[in-house]
Amino acid sequence: MDNDTKATLRRAALAGRAALPAEEVERRSEALCEQLFQHFPVAQWRWLHLFLPLAKQNEPDTWRIIHRIWAEELAVRLAAPVVQPDGVSLKHHELTPGTPLAENRWGIPEPIPSATVEILPAQFDAVLVPLLAVDEAGHRVGYGGGFYDRFLAQCGPATLFIGLSILDDAPVARIGDVLPTDVPLHACLMAAAVWRF
């Protein structure tokens, strides 16, 4: 079907993720980490933005990527998002081994802004983007808040947008209700495949 709606795809993906056993989430998260390092020049980046996982939603465990970068002492620096009090926008703060974290209202860990440096969107070489589904043009389905589309629109023209999917479903042909404000991905990593758009 080439006109799946975001709502339909979101429901199916959430159900698919909920059905994954914890050990499968761990296996796929490790595979995603391997895909990123195999297919992208992580060590050449200056700044990488990544989301911190909401474990109860079976999101990809990005801590595997974070800890590998720290263990290998790569030069790339990391930043993670902080939802702002307006409830619709993000700011981005450096993530180091010593960064203090606090859970936001959704249970997502965030850097504590007063203890960290804010990084502007234009500084990022790459952004790892959470998603539930993606189509063949790189348009993604998220949770529906629009946080990432607003953020990605602020990034520089050379910034790579790389989706991470814990599901191995191939991209659908087309999301039927893409908005003009939706920002497409350049690639999507899955445990079993890498898709480029």
Rank of each mutant, 00 (worst) to 15 (best):
S29L: 08
P184Y: 03
A122F: 00
W45K: 00
G142F: 11
L48K: 00
I119N: 00
M190L: 14
L120Q: 13
P184S: 09
L90K: 06
I108G: 01
L167Y: 10
A133S: 15
I112Y: 00
E118F: 01
D135R: 07
A191V: 10
A115S: 14
Q154S: 13
L189C: 06
A137M: 12
G145P: 10
G146L: 07
A55K: 10
V141G: 08
L167A: 11
E26G: 11
F197H: 07
R10D: 12
E59F: 11
P113K: 09
Q35W: 02
R28A: 08
A122L: 06
V76Y: 02
R150P: 12
V42S: 02
F51G: 04
L50K: 03
K91P: 00
D135H: 09
S89W: 10
V178N: 05
A13G: 15
P85N: 08
P113H: 07
L152C: 10
I108R: 02
D2P: 11
V117R: 14
A19H: 08
R105Y: 10
A173Y: 06
A7S: 15
T181L: 14
L179V: 00
H92R: 08
D125Q: 03
S114P: 05
T8I: 11
A191C: 12
I175K: 05
E136I: 02
T181K: 08
